[in-house]
Amino acid sequence: MRVYWEIAKRALSRQLTYRTATLAGLATNFYFGLLRAAVMAALYGARAQVDGISLQAAITYTGLAQSLIAVISLLGWFEVMRSINKGEISSDLLRPIGYFKFWLAQDLGKAAAQLALRGIPLMLGYALFFDILLPQTLWHWLAVFLALGLAVLLSFSWRFLVNLVGFWVTDATSIGRVVYIFSWFLSGFLMPLRFFPDWFVRLCYLTPFPHTINTIVEIYLGVLTPGQMLRALLLQLAWFVGLTLACSWVLRRGIRHLVIQGG
């Protein structure tokens, strides 16, 4: 267990060294947040509330969505498939640590760094520009961070699964790109899912993606009842477990494929 802790710590401190990139990323997120907030305000016009979301909540949402993309790595991640395609996986597999856990530890370290460097500063910056909402009770705060943690785990398992395509396809990045586009659309990153027609939202919830951004947002904004909140968290957990099981099954088959075909 200790080794994974060390790996995560390394990944975190490595992220901390990319200062200019972080600053630029922050600026980009902030800019897009401002744009989306302006769009939101214009959409609402004179309306006080839409689908249980006030304008203030909607603007808070635009900030949340921008803070979360880097933490949850929503725009895509290709490292594992590149390592498989380049054959570096063979040396990774020689290490006496679990392949899935090795990458998970790195991802968690990275996510922690992104939260500290981009997620939280962005929300603080947002608070200067807009009158944003905060979670109402301590329980909401706790639930938000719990949901965030689960979202990071779930997102990781999903991305890892996509990356494993690399075992069977030599240039898997193009496939990954197509798949990731769906995940950001269905996660509620572009608009709160509540704004969409019911049939579409139900369709979204058949996939793991809304359990990343949309769930966190709804808990944060307090639009869920305690029962719904608990259910949302349990669903996140279930998806994480399910996807992780899928990862380990596919990974085993992939390694067998690699051994037989010879990378």
């Binding site: 769009v39 214009a42 959409l43 609402y44 016009g45 309306r47 839409v50 193009s174 496939i175 790109r177 197509v178 586009i181 769906f182 659309f185 572009l190 608009m191 704004f195 969409f196 027609p197 579409f200």
Partner: peptide, 29 residues
């Protein structure tokens, strides 16, 4: 082909989102 598809898809999806939302809010400004 896949990359062309992904580029087109990204663009379609942005538009579909926009269209759905604009329909709901009956336009913007």
């Amino acid at each position: 082909l896949l990359e062309t598809l992904s580029v087109a898809l990204g663009s379609i999806i942005s538009f579909v989102t926009l269209a759905l939302v604009l329909q709901k809010f009956e336009g913007i400004a």
